[in-house]
């Protein structure tokens, strides 16, 4: 465990909690892509199957369980409890365009051709693109509430910090995970445009982020 990894995990947790509380307290999921949240629930489910096969640490187990529970709780708020506020018309990204290539790639490019490994690889690839329905929704409606942008900021920062973690681990431990690193770089690139808008628009004032 190093400082980049720990702060990355904290940012990830903060992001998920921000989103959950935003929906819970406003009793509305307006502006939130249910499809992105479903994809993240799928990411955690396929990646954390190792909860049943390998014990790493209390920290590891607790975080995995918390991420899983919060992911499904968020999905259920969007699709059940507050579904009247769900803007399904704006959430029109075709997820099959992500799921099919990601599933295909995880069969082709993995560390070993076993069910658990393929699902782990699938989760890594899927995570790198899972935010696209949310970004697409913001582009389509042309705006995002500032609380939603804070969620996206912490979610983007999490994988960016993991990149620093991987550089650290490579130097300190000689550990290099090609699949995770390449996917992590791709994932971070998707946030670059958002980061720019976040710093130039959200943090300098206006309540909402509006697109040019």
């Amino acid at each position: 465990m190093n400082i980049f990894r720990l702060s990355g995990d904290v940012c990830h947790l903060v992001a998920i909690i921000i989103l959950f509380l935003k929906i819970w307290r406003s009793k509305s999921c307006a502006g939130i892509s249910g499809k992105s949240q479903l994809l993240f629930a799928l990411v955690f489910t396929t990646r954390y199957l190792d909860l049943f096969t390998a014990f790493i640490s209390i920290y590891n187990t607790v975080m995995k369980v918390v991420f899983l529970v919060l992911a499904y709780a968020t999905v259920s708020l969007i699709y059940f409890r507050f579904r009247k506020s769900y803007d399904s018309e704006s959430d029109s990204f075709r997820v099959e365009f992500l799921l099919v290539p990601v599933a295909g790639l995880s069969f082709l490019e993995n560390y070993s051709f076993t069910p658990l490994e393929i699902l782990w690889t699938f989760s890594i690839y899927l995570e790198s693109v899972a935010i696209l329905p949310q970004l697409f929704m913001i582009t389509k409606t042309g705006e995002a509430e500032s609380i939603t942008t804070h969620y996206l900021f912490f979610l983007g920062l999490y994988r960016t910090l993991y990149l620093a973690n991987w550089v650290w681990r490579y130097h300190e431990e000689g550990f290099f995970d090609q699949i995770a690193v390449v996917s992590g770089v791709v994932q971070t690139i998707f946030y670059c445009d958002f980061f720019y808008l976040y710093f130039t628009r959200v943090l300098r004032g206006s309540g909402k982020m509006t697109l040019p």
Partner: peptide
């Protein structure tokens, strides 16, 4: 094997 390291990351 790098497996334990990978399963360590979230």
């Amino acid at each position: 094997s790098s497996d334990p390291v990978r399963h360590d990351e979230l």
